[in-house]
Amino acid sequence: MSEAEIYRLHVNGERRDVTDSWVGESLLDVLRDRLGLVGAKGACEQGECGSCSVIVDDELVCSCLVMAASAVGQRIVTVEGIAAPGTPSDVQQAFVDAGAVQCGFCTPGLIMAVHDLLDRTPAPTDTEIREELAGNVCRCTGYGRIIDAVQRVAVARTERAS
């Protein structure tokens, strides 16, 4: 990688040119301010809250701690890439139905984390859910309804599979 400030990212299946970024700018800021993808939220700038979670090359990461230019050539998925507008994924719908959303600021990050969790661990235990989501802080819900939402999806997917 050079000092070039013009690069191309691969986001939600599309190639997106980044033309006006400064070296060192985080993926979170580039997504939000340069590419208009404001689904990922910034709440701590330190990787402590998970609100900015996105998936880069199949790994869940905090986009605030990814230097955007270092993600050239990687596949980036944001909450906007999970499902088409108005047709929520099973995880998204479960969050709505279970009462897992209050202010909703942590929600996009949690949606990414829960999809990642259930892709890797289809039937997580209570401890697995808590440990795998511990990087996503929610200040409104006390987490109870979020765990319920995760369990609902796990059960529904298991039933569908059998």
């Binding site: 050079s2 070296v23 985080s26 330190q46 990787g47 605030c64 701690l65 230019a69 270092s70």
Partner: peptide, 22 residues
């Protein structure tokens, strides 16, 4: 991994002046 360096950059405590090697 960026998990330390980016914290400093986000804080404005650090700005890369030259090339960044990932």
């Amino acid at each position: 991994g960026g998990t330390d360096a980016m914290v400093e950059i986000n804080d404005g405590h650090r700005r890369p002046q030259g090339p960044v090697v990932a």
